[in-house]
Design a protein around this nucleic acid. Structure first.
Lengths: 319, 319
DNA sequence: CCGCTCTTGGCAATCGATTGCCAAAACGAC
DNA sequence: GTCGTTTTGGCAATCGATTGCCAAGAGCGG
């Protein structure tokens, strides 16, 4: 700033010749800024997360910020341990894609005043920026699409209530059903909370089995996410229920490869990559001094119509 | 060690009461050990990598080692930048799933004496431990399976020569063809090097199109990885070539969801998760003082037979 | 030539934990 | 009670970069 250009050039060329590279650990200690951020996700093997991670990476890299990744498998205890470790490591910020709506033991740790950005899932009563997809709109699009095809009895495989996504999508489902004047039957909603174990196709299969055992009539089904929808494919196929001839299925997220299932899955496109991008930008703005405490960014959801939805058969399945 | 148990208890309880947590940055500076490691992969969105990352995570977490993740998209320059950044950050070790066989500008950086473990891809003339799947065996299993079904003319969609996997699988393919006494035709091998752009289904489609344009007869095809195989599905379907009736297809890796394609893909199971696990163990042993410099761990490959392979049709496709 | 401002170079403190050393205190044995 | 050993508390240096301060030197106008 106040040194001559010549000196600057001389010093930096000398530095280059000597191959000098500043020790970021020492700098981090002195400045109390590590230029690294932490990211907690449920499971990197769940196909919904890699695009989100890429979104974060792509924005953070140009800023020279490195990313510490960890999977929690939705275990609160592990989450606390991992957050503690990251805090001890003095990350400059924390991205959480693992938030639960109600009380989380994390709260205590989050009292630490490092910037936090929530991805996808919100936490009640916590003034923290959040980037999410528009679940209400997404579900409404799905319901409307099915209604237009002529479906009146639609079932829903709902995610956990503890997670805002699961809760919101179920609420949205109920609202959209009434809005569209369809026959909403509480018994046609199966909640993941009735089961245990990891979210995945097996869970979807178990839930679909539960739904069938209830004998509630339905001609279409909306799953809270694509993995659950795939579980339905498995169960329906084994029972010789044809998709979409007998039952229409709509997924959620538009995860990789669901366009290649048979039949290709109609699903709501959740902007996973974009969520990562926007979350990272929010964090960087925060680093730059912006006050974005309670800001929520809602990204549009769109319906991707493929081949798993069709007009309903004359008589509803109750097999 | 030489202090009374009572003091130890007193101190640690006091520490707990005060909520004392050691600052890992300061410790890292003093001890020159950060308890973090770096991981470079081509792209976390490529479904082959999440399982590998999980394998690493699952072994590193119990040891309290955190993981810095970065995707290079196979750009050597980005790789150099990311490795530099990680070195500046004083990671204790580096996992590279991005190695290229021949010269890489990375070499210079790797002169730094931090432990390195290569995943999946090897680097010529570099004494660094490597964990890989058995590509020769995997390809041989694929060829033998097709031979047993009665195929004699088999095509191969080969990966880049610059990457050991691509090279090895192609060599293995040629060797296995001769070994099995089949009709090996160099023109039936399409190399990814003839194209540019990211590895993915589009590349596979382009390669399959190239193969078809050559008019070499073949009744089966082995792709160097599942994504390429999926690209073939697209092209063949658009040309009304039926799988497996007209052409049999074998993939490689057994990535998530390929069991749900139509038809479900016969593929070689590459132990992705296990590679991550073993690599992490190698690293930890190294931290503990083990000398495992040039060790290579080869993990078994197995063939997963699904529905994309069948006996050849009476006459070979040359469409 | 003096006094002023602006540039340099140099020096010391700091971040928080680790490490080694030393003195003080406690303990045991003789 | 003395000597030797063990425990304890305390102190200082260190890791490498950042930050502020101060003095020496350069440059300029009066």
């Amino acid at each position: 700033e106040r040194v001559s250009a010549e000196i600057v050039a001389r010093v930096s060329s000398a530095a280059k010749e000597l191959g000098y590279r500043p020790n970021r650990v020492a700098r981090a200690l002195r400045m109390d800024r590590s230029s690294s951020v932490g990211l907690l996700i449920p499971d990197i093997s769940n196909p919904a997360y890699p695009p989100m991670v890429r979104g974060l990476e792509d924005v953070l890299r140009p800023s020279g910020i490195s990313l510490l990744l960890a999977s929690t498998d939705n275990y609160p205890q592990r989450e606390v341990e991992l957050v503690s470790a990251m805090l001890d490591q003095r990350v400059d910020g924390l991205f959480l894609a693992t938030a639960t709506s109600k009380y989380s033991p994390l709260r205590m740790l989050l009292a630490a005043k490092i910037p936090i950005v929530l991805l996808n899932r919100s936490m009640d009563d916590l003034a923290v920026p959040l980037v999410r997809g528009d679940d209400h709109k997404g579900i409404r699009l799905a319901v409307q699409h099915l209604a237009e095809l002529g479906h009146r009895r639609i079932a829903h495989l709902a995610g956990t209530d503890a997670v805002s996504n699961g809760f919101d999508r179920r609420e949205a489902f109920i609202a959209a059903m009434k809005e569209s004047g369809l026959d909403f039957d509480p018994a046609a909603v199966v909640s993941a909370d009735r089961f245990k174990g990891p979210v995945g196709t097996e869970l979807g299969a178990a839930m679909a089995g539960d739904l069938l055992s209830r004998k509630v009539p339905f001609t279409a089904l909306i799953a809270a996410n694509d993995l659950l929808a795939i579980g339905c494919y498995d169960v329906f196929k084994s029972k010789h229920i044809r998709i979409p001839k007998d039952v229409s299925i709509v997924g959620y997220n538009d995860v990789a490869m669901v366009d290649r299932l048979s039949p290709p899955l109609t699903t709501v496109r959740h902007p996973l990559y974009e969520i990562g991008v926007r979350a990272a930008r929010l964090m960087i703005e925060r680093f730059a001094g912006a006050e974005n405490e309670a800001m929520t960014i809602g990204l549009a959801a769109t319906l991707i119509v493929r081949k798993s939805t069709a007009p309903p058969p004359p008589r509803a399945v109750t097999v």
